[in-house]
C-alpha cells in the first residue's frame, strides 16, 4: 500500500465514526481528507477554528474569496446555512461542549490517551494553535495517524516523551494498520486493516494493548 492509499484508508475509516448532525473539526494533514469520505446518508457540519461553521469544498480556480480560508490556510467555501463568527465564539464552541468530534494528527500518542503534537525539544515552535483547546474541549477526540514515522519509529507509545498537547484526552486511534480504543485499562485493539497481521501491528507499536475478544477469536488460538 503506498502512502496515498494508507492516508486515504485512515481518512475513510475515521469518516465511519461520524454520525448525522455531528459538529466536527478536522486538523491539518490526514484529518482534512476525512471530509472526502463522509457517508452519503449523513450530514455533518465542519467547524473551522478561524471562525465559521459549514466548511464547503475548495472553490473553483478564479473564484476564491481571499477572506475564506480553512485553519490550514487553504481557500475553501462556506455552504448555504453556514455562519461566520469571531475567534472567541469559535473557541467557545470548542471548549463549551458544542463540538462533537475533533480529528487530529500526532507526533506521539500513548496508552493513557495523552498526545503530543505541538513542539519538539530544541525547537521554538511550531506552537499548538488550537490543538490544546480541541483536545480539551471536543466531546470525542480521534487521532488519525500513520502508525509509524517516516523512519519507521512507532507513534503509539507506552508514555509520550514529547511535550504534551493534552493529558488523557484521546478516545480512539485510527492508523493505517488498525483501530485502537483508549480505555481506562489501556489500549484495546478493535480492528486490524485487512491484510495486516497482528505480528506486524505488534512490531510497530511501542505500547502494550489488549485485543478485543471478537477480534481475538477471529485471529485464532495462536494469539494472546
Amino acid at each position: 500500500m503506498d502512502k496515498r492509499a494508507r492516508r486515504e484508508y485512515i481518512a475513510r475509516r475515521v469518516a465511519q465514526e461520524l454520525s448525522n448532525g455531528d459538529v466536527v473539526n478536522l486538523g491539518i494533514g490526514i484529518p482534512t481528507l476525512v471530509a472526502n469520505f463522509i457517508p452519503a446518508e449523513i450530514t455533518v457540519i465542519f467547524h473551522s477554528e478561524n471562525g465559521f461553521v459549514g466548511i464547503g469544498p475548495p472553490p473553483r480556480e478564479g473564484e476564491e474569496d481571499p477572506d475564506i480560508i480553512n485553519a490550514g490556510g487553504q481557500f475553501v467555501t462556506i455552504l448555504p446555512g453556514g455562519a461566520f463568527f469571531d475567534s472567541t465564539l469559535s473557541f467557545g464552541i470548542i471548549r463549551g461542549g458544542h463540538l462533537d468530534i475533533a480529528v487530529l494528527g500526532v507526533l506521539e500518542v500513548d496508552a493513557q490517551g495523552n498526545l503530543a503534537n505541538w513542539t519538539v525539544p530544541g525547537r521554538s515552535g511550531p506552537g499548538m494553535g488550537g490543538a490544546m483547546d480541541l483536545v480539551t474541549g471536543a466531546k470525542r477526540v480521534i487521532v488519525a495517524t500513520e502508525h509509524t514515522t517516516k523512519s519507521g519509529r512507532p507513534k503509539i507509545v507506552e508514555r509520550c516523551a514529547l511535550p504534551l498537547t493534552g493529558e488523557r484526552v484521546v478516545d480512539l486511534i485510527v492508523s493505517d494498520l488498525g483501530v485502537l480504543e483508549v480505555t481506562p485499562n489501556g489500549l484495546l485493539l478493535k480492528e486490524l486493516r485487512p491484510g495486516v497481521t497482528i505480528d506486524e501491528l505488534q512490531a510497530k507499536t511501542a505500547a502494550r494493548f489488549s485485543i478485543q475478544p471478537c477480534l481475538a477469536a477471529e485471529l485464532g488460538p495462536a494469539i494472546g
Binding site: 477554528e49 469559535s90 471548549r95 521554538s124 511550531p126 499548538m128 490544546m132 483547546d133
Partner: peptide
C-alpha cells in the same frame, strides 16, 4: 520567526489559541 527565536533575537511565548482569545 523560528530562526530569529533560535538566534535569541525574539522571545516567543506560545499560548493555546482559545486561551489567547479569552
Amino acid at each position: 520567526i523560528e530562526e530569529r527565536a533560535a538566534a535569541g533575537e525574539i522571545e516567543v511565548e506560545f499560548i493555546p489559541q482559545g486561551t489567547l482569545t479569552e
